[in-house]
Each structure stands twice: as C-alpha cells, then as structure tokens.
C-alpha cells in the first residue's frame, strides 16, 4: 500500500496546487485542544505535522518554543502524543501524520520501541531536526522497514555534492529549509530565490517530493505555489498563542487560518 503521504501529494497535483502541510505542537495548548485542532484543520490541510515538544530546541524560533513550553507545562508525554495520533486517525484514517522533533526524545524512548508505537498509532513520517545525514542512515533504514517515511532536511548551506548524496539515500519526501533561520523567522530571501534553490534540488531527482518550510505565512504562501508542498508552522503556533491571550477559542481561529492558507494556494 502506498504511504498516505504520497497519496496526499498525488491528490494535490491532480488539483494543480502544492500540498498544504501544517505544523502544530502536540499537546498545545492541552492534549484535548491539540486533538481538536487537528480534527478541525484536517479538512483543509493535506498533511499534518505534529511537533514533539522538547525543552532545549536548538532550531526553533520563539513561536514554536512558546508552544512547546506550554505543552510541556501542561503535562504532555511521548505516550500522550501517540494517543493523540491514534485518536485522530480514528476520526480521519487516511490523513497523513508526520511527527517532528529532536532526537533525544526518540533516543530515550528507544528507537525500535518508538517506531513500533509510530506504526501502531498511525504515524506516516518522521522529521528529526538534529539527526542529519549521514548520522541518520541507520535510523532511516529502520523507518523504511516500517513503511514510515524518514524525511531528510535540506538547507541553503547544504553543498551540491551533499545534496546529491542525501537525496540518493532519501525516502519519497524531503524538506527544504527556505533560508538560514530558525523556525518562524521573517522571510529574508525573496520567494523567487527560494524557488530557484528549490528547482536546483528538484532537478537532482524530480520524482522526490520536496516541501518548503520556515518563514511561510499567509502573506508569502501564494508566491511559493510551484513547490510540491508548503509547510506553515510558526504562524499557526502564533495564532494559538494570540487566541489564548485574547481568551478566544484557538480551535476555531486556527481552523480559519488554515482555511485561508489553503485558499491562497488553490
């Protein structure tokens, strides 16, 4: 059976648009709210990234940090995250879910045990921010055996030789970091330049799906339409924080935001 992630890309292509990937932190603002948010955005998002919150995130900007600290403060544990995914899949079993996090969380849980739980709860892909290639070779192989995509990150600093090697080893989906930044930074490179870099990467192996992430908001998403997929994370986390601050319902607000994002790429 084809991984639902690949099906999602196919479907978006048929509609002649990029796939929309959303990122929310598991357990933000609480376990229940987090599940409600997933359910409410799944109509408009093609792939759901769910962050595994960590308290020393070296690649995340302030928005995602705030969400992560909030989730941890509200008691989220790794097992709760699997529970959220499982419950969500009962609601929408074909919607692909990707977990994104830092390696220590997996290392402490145990790689094999973690992957088994991923399989059982319905996780379709993994992004591990601080487990780059070639360090991730072994773990990526384990993922493959479980039919879970291990998603490689590619950056503007990745050299051409390295790009080729990573893509050769990669699974069907990769993630291009738009610019030198932590998550949620202001887009400091023009969308055109990002797309130029994207095309260079795409040319190495056109069959691999490449999504672009970091710094994408309502304002910029439309300009990056040619990509296979676009990830919005910090803007959503920011919306959750904003809603809480104004005592509004984050579920409806985030749902509205995702709908708007979708409308920009149709």
């Amino acid at each position: 059976m084809l991984n639902p992630i690949s099906i999602a890309f196919k479907k978006a292509k048929q509609e002649n648009r990029p796939a929309l990937l959303t990122y929310t932190v598991a357990g933000d603002s609480s376990k229940k709210q987090s599940l409600r948010i997933l359910k409410s955005i799944s109509k408009n998002a093609d792939i759901l990234e769910l962050g595994v919150p960590h308290n020393t995130p070296v690649a995340d900007g302030s928005q995602i940090q705030t969400s992560a600290y909030r989730a941890i403060k509200n008691g989220i544990k790794v097992n709760d995250i699997f529970k959220i995914v499982k419950d969500f899949k009962k609601f929408d079993k074909n919607k692909p879910v990707i977990l994104m996090g830092y390696y220590n969380m997996i290392f402490q849980y145990g790689e094999n045990k973690f992957l088994n739980k991923c399989k059982l709860s319905g996780v379709n892909g993994l992004i591990i921010v601080d487990l780059p290639w070639p360090e991730n070779k072994n773990f990526a192989k384990k993922c493959k055996k479980k039919s879970i995509y291990f998603i490689q990150l590619l950056s503007p600093t990745t050299t051409k030789i390295r790009l080729k090697k990573i893509i050769k080893d990669s699974h069907p989906m990769n993630y291009f970091i738009s610019m030198l930044s932590t998550t949620g930074g202001k887009l400091k490179v023009s969308p055109n330049d990002i797309l130029k870099n994207y095309s260079k990467i795409k040319r190495i192996d056109p069959k691999k799906e490449i999504v672009i992430g970091f710094g994408i908001t309502e304002k910029t998403i439309g300009k990056l339409r040619p990509a296979d997929g676009l990830v919005v994370g910090s803007a959503i986390c920011k919306e959750i924080s904003r809603s809480l601050k104004h005592r509004q319902n984050p579920v409806t607000n985030v749902s509205k935001l995702v709908k708007k994002l979708k409308s920009k790429i149709l």
Partner: peptide
Amino acid sequence: NFVPETLKK
C-alpha cells in the same frame, strides 16, 4: 554532531 542540517556545512 546532532545538529540541524543548516549547521553541517
């Protein structure tokens, strides 16, 4: 070297 890809280079 458990670092984000951006720092590899």
